[in-house]
Amino acid sequence: MSTSNGQTLDLAALERYLAEHLPGFRGPLQATKYKGGQSNPTYQLDAASGRCVLRRKPPGQLLASAHAVEREYRVLQALQHSAVPVAAPLLLCEDSAVIGSAFYLMDHVPGRVYWDPALPELDAQQRGRIYLGAVDTLIALARLDTAAAGLADYGRPGNYFARQIARWSEQYRASETAPIAAMDALIRHLPAAAPPDDGRSALVHGDFRLDNLMWSGQGELLAVVDWELSTLGHPLADLGYFCMALRLPRNPVLPGLAGLDRAELGIPSEAALLARFGEATGLDPGADWPFHLAFHFFRLAAIAQGVMKRALQGNASNEQALAAGRMAGTIAQMGQEVLGG
């Protein structure tokens, strides 16, 4: 199977491997690449034995620690039977010789993905239920006992934001293709703006937005997907990212809600989302909220720049990779403005 950007999936080799390692598997095998996934290519696999989903590392030279499908698989295992819904993990293959990169299989969840955070296909009441359901899942993540889930060593303890700023500054510099003044400013000012570490730790998804959530037709959250950027960190991190995404401009690549009347749409205000999270967890960002937003604008801009670099190298997963990469400057500018720089 070939995709439009040159990535290939050797179905014959994959079928032979699954016949040997996946209990109950029966071919023949067909694969369909999902349109999403700027980072790790994702495919729906259909076989005589049933349907599942494959996620793989992309081909080509990769940044250190990026595209960690092995970590994704570990999280799926850890969250089985937790209050955070995920697809069931089926198989991990770390042998890149099989299809050219490491991959894993998970159960297919027949849910609905909403690509536009304005939710134009729903009514106001349904929109409100989706947004409150998303925040309730963030609450469940904040409450998760990571040690009991077997994730006590899933990340380094303490100083989450300081470490993340340093890490994404390095990742940005490694994928920089042209100077972005706003990113330079954020790299300079974010470390001093970070609040003191309070010792709180939780499993952080790292890319918690609506299009990484799968829903039933009745508005029940069926699965949180794309755990590639997950780690142990501060429980406010995913909340800041989720709310940052709502502020992005309306665009077809990384769509946000800027300029829309959220009240008319039935989408809860940012203050209401923060209050719901705070009442359930005891966490209130208070005066540090501008930092949380600016940090995530910075981080998203660094991610977008990485997508741009991979697109220029010819090994990005999605056809819109270049368009997403070109937004790095706009996103960084929003971060600089919310930080007050």
Score class of each variant (00 low, 15 high):
A193E: 03
A193F: 08
A194H: 08
A194L: 11
P195M: 08
D197V: 14
D198L: 11
G199N: 09
G199F: 11
G199I: 13
R200F: 04
A202E: 01
L203V: 03
V204A: 03
D207S: 13
F208H: 01
L210G: 05
D211C: 05
D211S: 15
L213Y: 10
W215S: 08
S216V: 02
S216P: 06
G219W: 09
G219Q: 07
A223R: 10
E228W: 12
T231Q: 13
T231W: 10
G233E: 04
P235T: 08
A237Q: 12
A237H: 11
G240Y: 08
G240W: 08
Y241I: 12
C243S: 10
C243W: 01
C243N: 13
L246G: 15
L246A: 15
L246C: 12
L248K: 00
L248S: 01
P249T: 08
P249K: 13
R250S: 14
N251F: 02
N251L: 02
V253R: 00
V253H: 12
V253W: 13
L260M: 14
D261N: 15
R262G: 00
L265W: 06
G266L: 11
P268D: 06
A271D: 15
A272T: 15
L273N: 01
L274Q: 03
L274F: 07
L274W: 14
L274A: 02
A275C: 02
F277D: 02
F277K: 02
F277M: 06
F277R: 01
E279K: 14
T281N: 08
T281Q: 08
D284P: 00
A287M: 03
D288F: 14
W289H: 12
W289A: 10
P290Y: 05
P290G: 02
P290I: 08
F291W: 04
F291Q: 07
L293H: 00
L293M: 12
A294L: 06
A294G: 05
F295N: 03
H296C: 08
A304V: 06
Q305I: 01
V307W: 04
M308C: 05
A311F: 10
A311K: 00
L312H: 05
G314S: 07
G314E: 10
G314T: 10
N315I: 11
A316N: 04
